[in-house]
Structures are given as C-alpha cells and as structure tokens.
Computed example of a mutant assay.
Amino acid sequence: MSKLNIKSLMVVGLTSTLLVGCDAMNQGQDNGVTENQTGNVNEEGDVAVSEMRVDVSSGVTDAVSTIDDAVVSVINLQQAAQNPYGWYGGTQDDTVEGEEDLQTVGTGSGAIYKVDGDTAYVFTNNHVIDGSDAVDVLLKDGTRVQAEVIGADVWTDLAVLSISSEDISSVAEFGDSNNLKVGEPAVAIGSPLGTDFASSVTSGIVSAVERSVPVDTDGDGTYDWEMTAIQTDAAINPGNSGGPLVNIAGQVIGINSMKISTSTVEGMGFAIPSNDAVDIINQLENSGEITRPVLGIGMVDLAMISQQQREAVLNVPEDITGGVVIAEVTGGSAAEEAGLAQNDIVVKFNGVDVTNGVELRQQIYDTTVGDDVEVEYYRDGTLETTTINMRASNEVL
C-alpha cells in the first residue's frame, strides 16, 4: 500500500472519529462519549470479554458442517532412497512408523463417499497417488489409516481408495453439476500445503461451467487432453487436489484438480464436475480400471507437419488446415481392419470434425466398445470414408 493510500485511510478514520464526537455533543453528552464506547469493563474496572453471543451461521457454515467430517487428507508414500550413513544426514521424520522404508513424498485431499460393510471408499485425484508404494488416509479426527488403491485413471485424473469403515461417521453426498448456475456459492475443503492445514475451508463462487482446460497427462510438455471443468474463485492451493468443491447444501459438485498459478493470475481454480466424476468413480470401484475404445494408431497433428512434407508426402489439399495424420497402425487393430493406413489424414470422426489429436481422442472416448463409427480421411489427396467397429485395448489410442 502506498503512502498516499495510508494517509487517505488515516484521514477517513480521523474524520469518522470527529463526526462521532460532534454527534455526541449535539445529543447533549457532556463527556462526548456514548455509553457503548466505554467498552466491556467489569466491576473492578478491568476490560473483559463480552458475553454476547453472535449468531454467525450462514449457508457456508452449514455446508461445511454437512461434509467436513467426510473430508480427508491423502498421503503418498514411496520407498526411501537408501542412505549408506543410516539416518545421519537425513531426518527421522522422513520415515513413517511401522513403514521404515517408506517416506511421505506428497499429500493431497479426498472425501469418503460410500460405506459398504467394513469398507469405506474415498475419491481423490490420480496425480495425488501417482507413483505411490503405499497410501495413507488421515481422517478429520486425526486418525491415520492405511488405504488400498482400488483404481485410478490418468485421463480424468480420478482415483478411488478403500479404507476400513471402523472410524467413519460421515460420508459425502454428490450434487448435480449439470444444474450449476454461474455466480452461485462454492466452497473448497481440503489440506492445502499438507496435513498441518487439514480441513481448511475457502469459499467463493462458481465462476464458469464447462470450461475446456488443456492438460498434459504425461508431463512431456505437450497438451494431450482437454478436461471439461468447473471454474471457481474459491482458493485452491497445492494439497487441495482431490478434495471436494461443494455447493451451499454441502453436496459435492466437483473434485478439485488444478489451478492457474502465475504471478498475474488470481482466483482461477478448476474442479472435475460431479456428474462426470461419478461415472468414472463407479467404474473404478467396480473393476479397478476404465475400459475405453481405441483405434490402434499412432498420430501426429497435421499442424506439426511442414508445408514441404504436406505437399511432397501427404498431398494435402490446400484448403485442409487441420486433421490428424496417422503415423502408424497397430497390426490386428480396429483401424487396420477398417483399412486405415500410415499417412492417412483423419478429418472427421463419428460425424464430428477433428483438427488435432486432443479432439480425436475425446471423440474416441465418447464412443462405446462395440459401436460402429464412420471416419472420414484423406489419402493421397482424395477424401475417403470407412466404418470402424470400436473395441477395447490397452493401447493409448
């Protein structure tokens, strides 16, 4: 704050005090002090704390109380590097009691969403538990329990854990993210910067819905997916990942996943919509994995191909500026059976124009195993069409 602003504030404060004094004198107060200005003074003349009880309940406090006990911290444990000097030169706090060969490498958040007999289920982000050798969950009351990773999905950044239900007293309820209104209250709960700040609450609004946010899932510096997300200005910090974004009723409307973090940006966090998350969570809980259809191809965006190669190798028509070039076709794949080949340029999939690999992947994952899908592509400058029967595979595409 500049000196000018400070002076301005001081002047305002002084003016207010003078106005009070003048008002008091106008009301006939001899000492210029009204009764409520004497402060809380007891019979001995000492200042005391007021016994007045102020009702501070609000929609936010009610929402937090509804779900707070179901929110947890998720702790990623990995094998500790071997130290030839024992623990000297390191810190004893790096190890976990009873798990001497493991150390905490990261923490995130999550929430208990279901109890089934002796088992409770927790949702979190895939990137929170990625690379873990073991996972612990810290409950609201401070109880720390071991968790089992039931399943995780890199594309939606979701994971499901199971823990003992012995100490569980509350579960989170999912709300309908399809009915969100821009400007409605949104509350984020989690463990920013680690378990020392567990159960931290931040509030804001739903800033936007159905935001397309580019994501680099494999860390190679290239975007390979677009996540449809809820945007919020509720503060989301490192450690909030995997925790719930809730509405004013305390229902989970999103799962906090990421934020834009630069010195010029403030209040732009993103959450996976609950309606998208529930389907993935159910599949992970039931089968431990997500079964998606694939083509069986390697690909390159047409935009990445030089003009010389477009003309000399691909013979791309001049009016075609976007598409996906097939770099290779896996033997026995759905793409091979449909007649697709290297250097074909896919421009439309299942009736939808595709200009890059991200769009093609999204359209592929929107189909179901067993679907017959029409694909339009250019081969040596000629537009052709084929039908592909979608099948599941461990291939990326």
Rank of each mutant, 00 (worst) to 15 (best):
K3W: 10
L4N: 08
I6G: 02
I6A: 09
I6V: 14
S8I: 10
L9A: 10
G13M: 12
L14N: 08
T15V: 13
L18Y: 09
C22A: 13
N42H: 12
E44W: 11
G45P: 09
V47H: 07
E51R: 10
S58I: 06
T61A: 11
S65Q: 15
T66Y: 00
D69S: 15
V71M: 01
S73R: 00
Q79C: 04
A80K: 15
N83Y: 12
P84V: 12
P84R: 13
Y88T: 15
G90V: 02
T95Q: 14
D101M: 14
Q103H: 13
Q103W: 08
G108W: 05
G110M: 04
G110L: 06
K114Q: 14
K114G: 06
V115C: 08
A120W: 01
A120K: 03
V122H: 01
T124L: 11
H127W: 15
G131E: 13
D133C: 10
V145S: 10
A147G: 11
E148G: 08
V149Q: 08
V149P: 08
I150Y: 04
G151S: 06
V154I: 14
V160W: 00
V160C: 01
L161F: 04
V171C: 02
A172E: 03
A172R: 04
E173P: 00
L180E: 09
K181W: 00
E184K: 00
I189N: 00
D196E: 11
V201W: 02
T202G: 07
S207W: 01
E210F: 05
R211T: 06
V213A: 06
G219V: 09
G221D: 03
G221R: 04
Y223A: 11
D224R: 07
D224Y: 04
W225T: 14
E226Y: 14
M227W: 15
I230Q: 13
Q231W: 03
D233V: 03
P238R: 07
P238V: 07
G239W: 02
N240P: 09
S241Y: 06
S241N: 04
G242N: 05
G242A: 04
L245S: 01
L245W: 02
V246I: 14
A249M: 03
G250S: 04
I253A: 00
G254N: 07
K259G: 08
M268V: 15
G269E: 04
A271P: 11
A271K: 12
D276T: 15
A277D: 08
D279S: 15
I281K: 01
N282M: 10
N282P: 01
E285V: 05
L295K: 03
V300A: 12
D301H: 09
L302G: 03
I305A: 11
S306H: 13
Q309N: 13
E311Y: 11
E318Q: 15
E318W: 09
T321W: 05
I326T: 06
A327Y: 05
V329A: 01
G332A: 05
G332W: 02
K348H: 04
F349M: 09
N350Y: 06
N350I: 08
T355A: 11
L360D: 05
R361K: 15
Q362K: 15
I364L: 08
I364K: 02
I364Y: 01
Y365V: 11
D366W: 04
D371L: 03
V373S: 07
V375T: 07
V375I: 09
R379S: 09
G381V: 14
L383N: 10
E384V: 02
T385A: 10
T387P: 00
T387S: 07
E395L: 14
E395W: 00
V396D: 06
